[in-house]
């Protein structure tokens, strides 16, 4: 759930940090460096990976074969993170990512997960009634499109490679990247040109 921590939790964190510093396990600089690094991670990274895959067949092949290597090829530090898998949407197949057991999320390429991704409602319902959940995000898939829901785990993280929207022929990679948002990379909505419908 979202919300502010209690005073007790804040005090507990500071006591833990103080003890870890006393024992030489970490410094304040270590902590601040990680905060800065996590702040830099954002869905723009995932968006750039998608845009490159839309324009570069060799990169697309790498992305689908080894998401971790494809992220590293974009300069993302993946050391210590679980492997990244990428799910390819097709005209008759849409992917939706959830973590039913907790909140596993490819933070290195998408940044901090949104609260709704971690909510009990999303975790419970994405696998039971994905089309109803998609509708709550304003996404209506044509009836012929199958939905494949994929569960992220502590050992494997997933991201969606959506289909390139029609009408973007000749666009540069940078311009294409501006079309792609976090929600597209999780699969709760679809990239589209401004003014076009989500289901187009």
């Amino acid at each position: 759930m979202a919300g502010e921590p209690t005073a007790e939790s804040i005090a507990l964190l500071e006591k833990l940090v103080a003890a870890l510093k006393r024992r030489g396990i970490m410094t304040e600089e270590d902590i601040q460096a990680r905060v800065a690094s996590a702040d830099r991670a954002s869905p723009e990274t995932g968006a750039r990976m998608v845009a490159r895959a839309w324009t570069d067949p060799a990169y697309r092949e790498l992305l689908l074969r080894d998401g971790t290597a494809a992220a590293e090829a974009m300069g993302v530090r993946m050391a210590g993170a679980p492997p990244l898998g990428v799910l390819e949407d097709k005209p008759d197949l849409h992917h939706l990512v959830v973590c039913t057991l907790c909140s596993c999320y490819p933070r290195a390429v998408l940044g901090y997960p949104p609260h709704w991704y971690k909510s009990a409602a999303y975790r419970a319902r994405a696998v039971r009634e994905p089309r109803a959940v998609l509708a709550e995000f304003g996404t209506a898939l044509p009836p012929g499109v199958k939905v494949r829901v994929v569960d992220s785990t502590a050992d494997y993280r997933w991201m969606v490679l959506p289909m390139r929207p029609a009408g973007t022929e000749g666009w540069t990679e940078d311009r294409l990247a501006t079309l792609v948002t976090r929600d597209h990379l999780v699969g709760v909505s679809l990239p589209a040109l401004q003014g076009a419908t989500q289901a187009a």
Binding site: A2, L13, H115, W116, F137
Partner: peptide
């Protein structure tokens, strides 16, 4: 229970510090 897609508050300082540790 509806999923609330508008719940998009960024993590606060406590959240970021826990994640960093």
């Amino acid at each position: 229970t509806p999923v609330e897609p508008d719940d998009d508050a960024p993590p606060n300082d406590f959240d970021k510090r826990v994640d960093a540790v």
